[in-house]
Design a binder for these strands. Structure first.
Lengths: 345, 345
DNA sequence: TTGTAAGCGTTATCAG
DNA sequence: CTGATAACGCTTACAA
């Protein structure tokens, strides 16, 4: 514990016989500073082993260079890609990330929002928990003019930007594709309709049915769940018990799709011959399961990057949070064998 | 931007006609404070909409309640489980996490370490990049007595704790299991031997061969790579070209194992009949691929939790970083079909 | 281009 | 149990 005393800008100032103000300016490339003194300051700083004190700086400048992130869960492929994109973009802009997870629980999300507020993050990025009903817990941010960007699981709000994909269209396309393969009884495994992603996917599914004159059989063909491993398996059991079996399953995520598929295969259901399958997210498992899973690809990395860029732009005053309300990123239908009844599409 | 002025402890003090000192104490459960005044202070704080200023506090107290985390990549199932465990444990202890990734690049890791140092984290958790050669970039932490805990990809050092599993033993057990299934020519897909995890797994593999009087054919049966999707496919191509084919593959991670397996299956290799397979990590894909992949399970969540607990203990002075040098967590061999040549094990 | 001086909101010290 | 006062290290008017 050789706790040699911390070096401050005053030590540098004294060492060079200049004022602390000049040192402070020199250290952060202030325009009105002599190139030579600037150089000297940096040399002295290195020589003396100076490190800046972000607290003193934040205290004075009221800026923290920290972005808060609230996600439902850290351990999914999609979310970790999002975080990777965020971290990349943030570090390019010299921001740090404080990350917390709500564990899909609205109460914990509220607590996290409070912590972030107290930590005085410069801005907040949030993707909502499974059962969050409203966004009153972000009100404090809006009031203070702290920008909030929602991504993926968003909540439209006048004072914040949303980063999403066109879930409606993506789901429409999936369903249309299945119909094109001759499917007529398509089960939809959906998530909580409070969340835009699941509500929009359901809407897309319904609209595609409608446009092809297929009735929407809510009672039998719609299964709402948490879309995890267990839910996928349960859905399969449900399907196996149905009096007249469906000819396709469209799940709102790949995890549910994959586990449902495994269970059905075990029970001897032929895929795609007896039942076509499609998922959502292009998770790594979708390329591993056999037959490979038809799914919707969209880049978590891009979502994360876009969220940070958008936030940082607001922070730099480059764009008002009021003008940019929604950013829609690209997504693609990836057709794989699990849905190809008709080999020559 | 209704930037109503921030409330400080002075405002509370004035409001209650007491001193700011007392307010400060009241707010943090100082023992020598009247229960009643304490209650009043909390009420006033809520009433006035006070939020503590962590910067002022950190500036004065020299404690930040922030833990820095440096990981190779955020987007792997294992690492996101680790982070989930860390976040849970940290939030229980009122610490926040600042997370950064090295992208498997030593230079970026060095930069990350500097940032963390400048951000004055109370402690650091690190898992090393693929090609990090030494840990000179953590020297500043050691010198200042800032605790550093390495996890998974560690670097033994007197002043820091390591959280690991027994990679040697786990790999030994995998190899022994394959040998028990009758395999004699076992390819090992390994990683950079600079990293303990890969070096130890290789050692375990070699020792198991030795103990069963099987020669170690380094030239033909050892493939070192980055163990990603591409590497798995390349390894398969390599294997297909071999004059005398191996009868098993033991990969140091599941990703490489799975993609290698897929490619070999495509080429008509029967698994496990022609070639048995084993991986490492128990990634979700290992349960999806057919046949299911034999692998080594260990909990990323537990690793993350242990790392934070250990760090926080040091910070609280409950244990010296010198005494606890290494914590070894549990791991298990999970035998699945990919290695069962011999159905009755 | 540089310097002076005040203050950001807390906590440590010393005193009662 | 409570209070006065002085830091903590930096930035920012204002001045020169």
């Amino acid at each position: 514990m050789a706790d040699d005393k911390e070096i401050t800008i005053y030590d540098i100032a004294q060492y060079l016989n200049i004022s602390a103000t000049t040192v402070s300016r020199g250290l952060k490339d202030h325009p009105a500073i002599n190139k030579n003194t600037r150089k000297k300051i940096f040399e002295a700083a290195r020589h003396l082993g100076y490190r800046s004190n972000t607290f003193a700086s934040s205290l004075r400048s009221k800026k923290t260079f920290t972005i808060g992130v609230i996600v439902p869960r850290l351990n999914s492929y999609f979310m970790s890609s999002v975080l990777a994109g965020m971290e990349d973009a943030a570090s390019r802009e010299n921001y740090n990330l404080i990350i917390s997870q709500s564990l899909e629980n609205a109460q914990k999300e509220i607590a996290n929002a409070h912590t972030m507020f107290n930590k005085r993050v410069d801005g907040l990025l949030a993707s909502l928990a499974y059962d969050t009903e409203n966004i009153a817990h972000f009100e404090a941010f809006f009031k203070k003019g702290i920008p909030v960007v929602f991504f993926d699981r968003v909540y439209p709000h006048n004072d914040s930007t949303c980063i999403v994909i066109d879930n409606y269209k993506a789901a429409y396309d999936v369903t249309k594709h299945l119909i094109g393969q001759g499917c007529r009884r398509i089960v939809h495994l959906g998530g909580n309709l409070l969340r835009n992603v699941y509500a929009d996917r359901l809407k897309g599914y319904k609209q595609a049915l409608k446009d092809h004159n297929i009735p929407f059989d809510e009672k039998k063909l719609l299964v709402i769940s948490k879309l995890n491993e267990e839910a996928g398996i349960k859905a399969a059991e449900h399907i196996l018990k149905m009096s007249s079996r469906p000819d396709a399953v469209f799940a709102a995520n790949d995890t549910a799709a994959v586990y449902c598929m495994m269970k059905l295969k075990e029970a001897g259901v032929g895929i795609p011959a007896d039942m076509a399958f499609a998922g959502f997210n292009n998770d790594p498992v979708s390329k591993i399961i056999e037959p490979n899973l038809t799914t919707v690809n969209y880049s978590g990395y891009d979502v994360g990057e876009a969220a940070v860029s958008s936030l940082v732009n607001h922070l730099n005053g480059l764009s008002s949070i009021k003008t940019t309300n929604t950013i829609i990123l690209r997504s693609d239908l990836i057709i794989r064998e699990s849905s190809l009844k008709n080999k020559n599409l």
